[in-house]
């Protein structure tokens, strides 16, 4: 019980920190609005009438609102923070503490993620309502289930980012990983729904984790069905396990050969 309490305190302090460090969020708001504005106009031009690959304009805009929400929600900077900690040597403080470093980082980021989810969530609703109005057929009774999927998506993204970030323990420059990862997340679900991709790419995408961070939860929000829920949530759980195990493995490998700089 004590061991759990430790991480709850980490979460509480990081949440407190998120509230104090608000300027970060304001900057994010501007980008969020800009992004939504550009794509709203783009999609409005593309959609003369009807729907594309099963998405109406209203659904398309809400889809983007949600994928953006997930990505902005994950903006805790874990990847760059870890890079920075290794380069500056602050990692020395974080490693010799009686906790598990990976769990510490997770609960540390969780405060920011909860905070972001609330703020950007509110923002997503306001923007969606202003741009296109409510989603036809949306039911509040299924919202909690979609939320589970959103949280799962965020956690999968977090652990993959952390696994990549942990390469900083051994590599001098690992930002290429981040850039490639970010592009894949963007193309395979965040920017356009998986249904828009060519058939062969859709097949590949189904076997990759990226669409389960963005496409799955966003699709559940704009067109909920129990069939879809049971098709995607177990796969999300599987990817969460994979990303967590990968992160733990990367940590064990990284910490054994860490090159701590900074004097």
């Amino acid at each position: 019980m004590k061991a759990v309490g430790k991480y709850i305190t980490v979460l509480r302090i990081s949440l407190q920190n998120a509230f104090v460090y608000r300027s970060n969020v304001l900057g994010g708001f501007v980008f969020y609005i800009m992004f939504m504005f550009v794509f709203f106009n783009l999609w409005r031009a593309i959609y003369k009438s009807g729907e594309v690959a099963g998405y109406s304009l209203v659904q398309m805009v809400w889809y983007l609102c949600m994928t953006e929400l997930i990505m902005f929600g994950c903006r805790t900077g874990v990847f760059f923070q870890m890079n920075e900690d290794v380069k500056s040597g602050s990692i020395a403080y974080q490693l010799n503490r009686p906790y598990h470093y990976v769990l510490y980082q997770f609960f540390n980021a969780l405060g920011g993620m909860i905070f972001n989810l609330l703020l950007y969530g509110l923002m997503a609703i306001v923007i969606g309502m202003i741009m296109v109005g409510p989603i036809p057929g949306f039911s509040f009774s299924t919202l909690p289930y979609s939320l589970i999927s959103i949280v799962l998506g965020m956690c999968i993204n977090f652990f993959f980012l952390m696994a990549l970030g942990l390469t900083a323990f051994r590599l001098e420059d690992n930002t290429a990983f981040y850039l490639i990862y970010q592009k894949l997340v963007f193309m395979l679900g965040m920017f356009i729904p998986v249904e828009f991709l060519p058939g062969w790419l859709q097949t590949i995408t189904r076997y990759l984790p990226f669409s389960y961070m963005t496409w799955a939860p966003a699709r559940l929000i704009v067109a909920f069905s129990w069939e879809l829920f049971w098709a995607v949530v177990p796969v999300q759980l599987l990817w969460l396990t994979v990303s967590f195990v990968l992160t733990m493995g990367m940590y064990r490998y990284g910490v054994a050969g860490i090159q701590a700089h900074g004097g």
Partner: peptide
């Protein structure tokens, strides 16, 4: 407070 919790 955080460090206190971490060190039990």
């Amino acid at each position: 407070v955080l460090l206190g919790a971490i060190y039990d």
